[in-house]
Write a protein that binds this DNA or RNA. Structure first.
Lengths: 351, 351
DNA sequence: TTGTACGCGTTATCAC
DNA sequence: GTGATAACGCGTACAA
């Protein structure tokens, strides 16, 4: 290894300080104000000078100092996002889209994760606020009051994403989780199903998962049906968990004819385990999920699911915070969902 | 909707400016220097004053301004990472780990994506540099010379991640892609395979994919074997692509007995398509992949693959840049890999 | 159209 | 142990 940076604590004496605005100005023979204008309001500078300054910038290799800029302008050009996890399906995809949307409008994305822990989320938000983010993208809507007041005191605009509630204080960008699951229930009831089980993500500190569960409950109630408490399961986001919970659900005294899964990996696990147990899907058991990742449609028995464009959630969230910051008109957005029926679901078996 | 922020361009007149260091100082009846010390070097301040200042901070609700801090200290406490994509398997997982490792040492993660485009990557790096990142985590090692000089001129330390090359100028943190694939080839040859096909990610601007392909080629050569050019395929990172390329590979005049896939999704696709085509795996065809995501072991026929701890890549990359920044001793790290043999591979069929 | 000069909120270097 | 004050690098009234 031959690093060109010293691997020692001390650096060499001949440290050339990074070029500054004044260096550019000197080089171009103009004032610092002119250089600043060339960068920030090119139209207000004569062509000749602009050209001269641009060249000077190249020559001295000037890179503007964001800290100094932020200090005077009170804007950092950064947006913070705090998500429960960064690698999980829909969040991961939304991050991709967020980053693109922000980059397109010359903002940069500061990322943090909360691991579904409200306290950690708040501490991350605090840290991002100190960093001077111009806006925040958060997930869900439930937040402690101290938290709310912290944000409003700092006047940092933020988005509640992956959820939709028209009456929320701050704009929501996401699907109506409850309505989406309700549609799925309607479909299953229409197919003749009457006995259900559900495996969902832990609803603690997860208002999206809770909304989905309640959506199922309310929709069933509307049909005069219900899932008995002992047929409602909660688990982690994993295939293995889905496998395990399928086994538990199918060991119930009264077997369900339809299994509703709260996310994609639980559904995949449930389906794979059903195949392994030689449970005939969908003749014997219908399995449905939430979130349409590529895998859902590619398995030997493609899975019926709720499709929500997570990329859209990310993109619109980003654009909406920027609109709030830049003083444009903004509003929450209900991201549409769609029930995608595939081979894993069908008519309920005859009793 | 009843936003508590004005949905208009102009804000109300009674704008209370955010509390600053001097407000805290006034409140506590001390100088700004003392407040600063309480925050940054608590030990050098008397207990009484420290307590008084802490209370004052609470009362006025002071949040330090990172821009001002950065301006004088020349450090922003941010690390930038530019990855080809943020949602793809191993990258997504590594981001999670990076974020954790950085947060643990009180740094924050600035994220950008390059979409496998060197020009875009460079522009993202430029943007992050302007934002004043203290260090960078990049992917791979191949970089244009202008690029290198840009970074060294700005004296921003960086890591080449997901790759390992001991002689690199800047430290690498990642697996030895070539060696990993070579091990896999050794295993397959040992199982009696002589006819191979490979489906890999596009190697353009992707030195990791290239290293894997070359690793396969060299290892085969070492055994006096080779993959003919028409049995080498490149495609995108998706299950569908894997399915398609399996069909192409199995339509070759001389059918391979082993199919080497360059990443996890291609392997999953290939396996699922093989199942659909009723190709007996592994009796008729062995399928192996790279990267061990949960799905690989959960499919009806679990897939033999190379396991690399991507989380480790993220964690160690983060810690190493921080070490470089903080003047500690640092070095590149070769992340270990492991061949995980599962049901998708076995002895070559008798001719 | 261009230049001067001050201020942004901290940190760090001095004296005290 | 504590306080005054000069940077830090840029944006921007305001003057020219």
């Amino acid at each position: 290894m031959k690093p060109d940076m010293s691997n020692q604590k001390t650096s060499n004496a001949t440290t050339v300080p990074r070029a500054g605005l004044r260096d550019v100005a000197k080089m171009a023979g103009v004032s610092t104000a002119t250089v600043s204008r060339v960068v920030n309001q090119p139209d207000t500078v004569s062509d000749t000078l602009r050209k001269r300054v641009m060249d000077a910038i190249q020559v001295v290799g000037w890179v503007p100092n964001a800290a100094a800029r932020a200090l005077t302008s009170n804007r950092t050009g950064t947006i913070g996002a705090v998500l429960p996890a960064l690698a999980l399906g829909d969040f991961a995809r939304s991050i991709d889209a967020m980053q693109d949307a922000l980059a397109a409008r010359n903002y940069v994305l500061l990322l943090a994760r909360s691991n579904y822990d409200p306290a950690l989320e708040f501490s991350q938000v605090t840290k991002l606020a100190e960093r001077g983010v111009d806006g925040l993208i958060l997930v869900g809507r439930d937040r402690a009051p101290e938290y709310q007041s912290f944000l409003s005191r700092l006047k940092i605009p933020y988005i509640n994403s992956f959820i939709f509630e028209p009456e929320a204080t701050m704009p929501c960008v996401g699907p109506d989780n409850a309505a989406a699951m309700a549609s799925m229930v309607d479909y299953l009831v229409e197919q003749g199903h009457r006995r259900f089980a559900m495996i969902a993500q832990t609803t603690t500190s997860n208002d999206r998962a809770l909304a989905r569960r309640n959506g199922v409950r309310d929709a069933l109630a509307h049909h005069g049906l219900a899932i008995p408490p002992h047929a409602m399961f909660e688990g982690k986001w994993s295939i293995e968990e889905g496998r395990m919970l399928l086994n538990v659900a199918m060991a119930l005294e009264v077997r369900p004819t339809a299994l509703i899964c709260g996310n994609s990996m639980l559904a995949v696990g449930a389906l794979l385990q059903a195949m392994e147990n030689e449970i005939r899907v969908p003749d014997e058991l219908s399995i449905v999920g939430y979130d349409d990742v590529e895998l859902m449609s590619e398995l030997p028995i493609p899975i019926t699911t709720v499709r929500v464009a997570s990329e859209e959630v990310g993109r619109v969230s980003a654009d909406t915070v920027l609109d709030m910051i830049e003083g444009k008109r903004w509003t929450g957005t209900r991201i549409p969902y769609e029930i995608v029926v595939r081979a894993s679901s069908g008519p309920a078996p005859a009793t």
